[in-house]
Amino acid sequence: MKIIYKKPEPITKTHTTYCPGCPHGIAHRLVAELLEEMNLTKKAVIVWPVGCSVFGYYFIGTDAVEAAHGRACAMATGIKRVHPESFVISYQGDGDLASIGIAETVHAAARGERISVVYINNGNYGMTGGQMAPTTLLGQRTTTTPYGRDAKLNGFPLHVPEMLAAIDGPAYIARAALDSPQHIIQAKKFLKKAFTAQTKDLGFSLVEMISACPTNWKLSPVEAMERIRREVLPVFPIGEFKVAKGVE
């Protein structure tokens, strides 16, 4: 028997604390697979955010730091500048990166810091009970927008990759989705380019991953994945927004 796929080595034996069907686990596995393939496990430092993935250092066995809410990019900047030989990944959610930490993210991108950011967008604050996040879709019901998000009252969803692609600093900006095997294979390709941008010292790289939150969307895991295809992807289209020369 020939082995087609095997659980990557950096994934630890600890069971994840996520709800059943949460795509955080898929993103973890993609990061772990690439660290193993690109032989970066030994020198990787992952900066974990505040949010559901706060215990991420139990699930991926690399060096890790826990950042204050939203400040993961600022912390990653410091680590990369003090240890330029290390491979620094900042793993953040939408409430963390797009809301409280938007200043740190935009300025890290503008400075062109050599860090890779994995940005999970599930459209709400999953850990605290499903409040509205900057990326919540118009009309989406959350605990703080019980009648649906209203553009007049709550504003519009924030498109972070499009915004960062307008800055000169980033080397690679893309958006992927974690809803089907096809999109997950594509997400891995995008993430590999983002990691290459850092190993080749080209600049800041960010990959947004459209994710689901079955518990707070009050859907089953399979229905949540269908909702991504039906409602989220038309608003947040998949694609590469900025590819610097040399990222291949």
Partner: peptide, 21 residues
């Protein structure tokens, strides 16, 4: 042995996918 189950599994519960030689 397409491995779709491995790709979508969020908990790395599907540890190996094998194909007959």
């Amino acid at each position: 042995s397409c491995g779709f189950c491995y790709l979508i599994c969020p908990d790395a519960a599907i540890e190996e996918v094998r194909r007959l030689e």
